[in-house]
Amino acid sequence: MKIKLTHIPKLKYFLLMLFIGLLSCEDDVREVYLYKKGELNATSTNTAIKGGETVTYTDSSTKVRAIKWTFPGGSPGASIEPNIEVKYTKAGTFTTTLEITFVDNTIQKKTFTVEVEAPPTPPIVIPADALKIYSENPDFTKTAPVLNWVSSNQFVIKEVAADGYEGAYRNFSLPATPPAAEAKWAMAILQFVNVTDISSYTYINMAVRTTSTGKIRFRMKDASNTGYVEFDATSNLYGLKRDGSWNMVKIPIADYKKQNPALDLTKIKDILVLRSVDPEDVRALNNYTFDFDHIYLSK
């Protein structure tokens, strides 16, 4: 058998190219990674605080598509930010929930618990020369004449034994289901048994708690004339907030007189009249609930 020598160079060339190709394949080798799921990782700075303090929550999860925090009892009550500072003002045990949606649309949740200690009660200071009207504070000796609490229209007045500004308190609220024939307005009265001269006093002070969103007037009345100040749900006028906490409200008595110059401060009969504001219909809103405590006049 004869081998043509002319084919030998071609064979050598083929083997050389094959060898080079095999060497180049080594450079093209790539590592293959399996998909790794995202991980939920979040922290909080505190598990026990005092009322009025804050907790910082931080999410550092991986492969996140969406974040949702909920903070019962805290402010703000919810967030979609990875880092958020939350303030707690009321005492209790509150559970925060973090919900993470990952890029593969799977969802995981994590909870945090915080114990909130009741904030310290501020000292209750009453001027010695105040006209003390109503309070359960044992140091609050009444100096005003005998009082009457009068349910006039729709408002029901009741005394509640505990959870007041300092003990018992008076609650003014509408019936849960007022009769259809009831008027659209509501009123209730705190009055002196005898007319009283309050002209030497500058302010009427009271602790008020409410979440009502309705307009309301605090009125003052002599034998025949009425003056009032009016509150809406957003102004926080004179310190009246609608946040569900006890707030001290301090109203200049001159503002009642400014609204009605005929009001005779030497002969006041009704020291506090709570009256809804027309044309609001209390039957539709049905959220007129006000708590009162610690009422006095100061100079």
Results as ranks from 00 to 15, higher is better:
M187Q: 14
N148A: 08
G51H: 01
K2W: 13
G52W: 02
P122N: 11
F102W: 01
T266N: 15
S235P: 00
P252K: 14
L240T: 08
P279Y: 07
I20K: 11
L11F: 12
K68Y: 05
A254Y: 07
K12R: 12
V249Y: 00
R217H: 11
I100W: 07
A180P: 01
Y33P: 00
K258H: 04
K132D: 02
I198T: 05
T113Y: 12
E230V: 06
V195L: 09
V125G: 00
V273E: 10
T106H: 06
L240E: 06
R219C: 06
M1D: 13
I49H: 05
I124G: 00
G77K: 10
D27F: 15
S79I: 01
Q154I: 05
T97D: 09
G239A: 06
R170A: 13
N236A: 14
I268W: 08
E31I: 13
P122S: 12
M17E: 09
T101C: 02
G214C: 07
P279Q: 11
I251N: 00
F14N: 04
G73L: 06
F290T: 00
A233H: 02
L147H: 01
G244E: 06
W185R: 07
E280T: 10
A233V: 04
T111C: 03
A144L: 09
L237A: 13
I80D: 15
P179Q: 10
R242P: 00
E182N: 15
